[in-house]
Design a protein around this nucleic acid. Sequence first.
DNA 1: GGAGTTAGTTACGCTAACGAAATAAAAGAC
DNA 2: GTCTTTTATTTCGTTAGCGTAACTAACTCC
Lengths: 116, 116
Amino acid sequence: MPALSISPGQALKLWHKVSVNLVKDEARDLTTRQTAILLIVYLEAPPHTVRHLAERLGVTKPVITRALDTMGRMKLLSRYRDPDDRRNVLIRRTVEGSQYLERLADLISAEAEEVT
Amino acid sequence: MPALSISPGQALKLWHKVSVNLVKDEARDLTTRQTAILLIVYLEAPPHTVRHLAERLGVTKPVITRALDTMGRMKLLSRYRDPDDRRNVLIRRTVEGSQYLERLADLISAEAEEVT
DNA sequence: GGAGTTAGTTACGCTAACGAAATAAAAGAC
DNA sequence: GTCTTTTATTTCGTTAGCGTAACTAACTCC
């Protein structure tokens, strides 16, 4: 698979279409930080702990805890204690989270087709 | 210019990289709504009024007023009264807003090159 | 097994956003 | 010139996010 080639102008058009679409259609309104956390958990290699996520994003741990609270309520991901080191909290994917990202992926992909 | 062709998998990888990058590097933290408003003002044909933006995004007018307050403080755009109909507020681009979107465009474009 | 370290959460005070309703100002109708 | 409509903002009460600091629980190390 060759690398994607997107000009800055096309990039902005794509972001424009997707952003407007997200605002119009999506009930859930995630912050940029929440979106980043979600995508890390779903696309990067586990394990995912609060500390790892905080370091990965350059934010403090309470930021991660709060985002996990919110997205946990939304069922986009879940937490459980690491049985091997019970200080750790491991973050797990959920069916709803997968579906959410699947819809996001399809939306971006579809909007890209409209960008000239 | 042919249409962009991005698979859903590539789309997610792209969103992932850009989101993480925005969280790590960007001092400003715009909501999805704010981003959408900014991109509409910069990419769609004027005139841009509060009412138009609210209709375009399917949100109420106070949402737009508040977003304009915030982004006005950030200097990403500015407001002025329509001289022809002084009930209207027209939204204007700023140098800072252009630069912000230029950086965003470059970031997306650059990250796309990394997506296989 | 006690001292120190690490991981995550909670508490605190604050800022910003929300929806709904009320308000202010300007334009249009007649 | 008043009445109505339109446009945008402000207000109200609520919710969610922020950073800093304090805290709890679990592990490590001698």
